[in-house]
């Protein structure tokens, strides 16, 4: 029991240190949060133009204008809360520069250590982004739609936390490629491109042909971003929703096991360059 609490206290300290380090980057975060709004704004204006040429009440896919705008606003929120921004580069750099050597000696698990830093990082980002994102949401408030039900709201929050975990584990594993290759950036960008389109960042996936949409729900991509949004908006309900959460959980378990496996293989081939 005491051991258990000691673990909490230990990683609690890591979070604390992480918060203090991250605070130094607050202006960077603010800048990032503001610039993220530009493509979002462009997309919203694009859809408004398309809808303005349609008759009143016309739908695109199964969306009217406010549902479409709500979709993008919710994606913005999920993305701000869960997306990894610097962690993967830092992990890759730690490996390249030999910094991880010290973790092989310390009684500290690198994955948990990194996860604590990720939490600290997200916490500060959310705090900083609240101002620009909040103003943006306030400005677009006429398009805001409420969750379809209390149940949907609770489950979308559950799914949101699974999304955050999945985001972290996948980035962590990708960054571990630095054990074998000199430059991981290309691999990260390739994965990010898939996430950007197949995760529903650019447009809601139900605008795609049904067969493709169904196929995508078996891949991890929608669970990295848009799935909580779909639950919130009532786009997936009942059995399909529970199935989705199950698939998301399964991907999470796979991601965790892969992360552990890759780490174990990685430290075996690690030669502590510069350490």
């Amino acid at each position: 029991m005491i051991k258990f609490w000691n673990e909490w206290i230990k990683y609690g300290h890591v979070i604390n240190v992480g918060i203090q380090n991250t605070l130094a980057y607050r202006m960077n975060f603010l800048f990032r949060a503001v610039f993220t709004l530009i493509p979002l704004l462009a997309n919203i204006l694009l859809w408004k133009t398309i809808f303005s040429d349609k008759a009143e009440g016309d739908m695109i896919g199964a969306y009217n204008l406010s549902q479409m705008v709500s979709y993008y606003l919710l994606i913005l929120i999920v993305n701000s809360m869960t997306a990894v921004n610097e962690d993967d580069w830092q992990i890759a750099a730690d490996i390249r520069n030999g910094v991880i050597s010290q973790f092989l000696l310390k009684p500290m698990d690198y994955l948990t250590f990194r996860f604590s830093l990720f939490l600290a990082n997200r916490l500060i980002y959310i705090l900083v982004a609240t101002i620009p994102v909040g103003l943006f949401l306030l400005w677009q408030r006429n398009y805001w739609t409420a969750p379809v039900s209390m149940e949907a709201l609770m489950l979308s929050i559950l799914s949101l936390s699974l999304t955050g975990l999945l985001q972290f584990l996948i980035s962590f594993t990708m960054a571990l490629l630095a054990f074998w290759v000199l430059e991981v950036a290309t691999f990260i960008f390739i994965l990010y491109a898939f996430e950007y389109i197949a995760g529903g960042h650019l447009f809601p996936l139900d605008l795609l042909p049904t067969w493709l949409e169904t196929l995508l729900y078996w891949t991890p991509f929608p669970y990295l971003l848009s799935f909580p949004v779909l639950i919130y908006l009532g786009r997936v309900e009942g059995q399909a929703m529970w199935n989705g959460i199950l698939v998301q959980t399964v991907w999470l378990v796979i991601a965790f096991l892969t992360a552990r496996f890759v780490w174990n293989r990685g430290i075996r081939s690690y030669t502590a360059v510069g350490g």
Binding site: T49, D53, I60, I197, L202, F203, L207
Partner: peptide, 12 residues
């Protein structure tokens, strides 16, 4: 992205 949009509308 643009192709998906134009599968639902014929002009922007």
């Amino acid at each position: 992205f643009i192709s998906v949009i134009y599968s639902h509308t014929d002009h922007i």
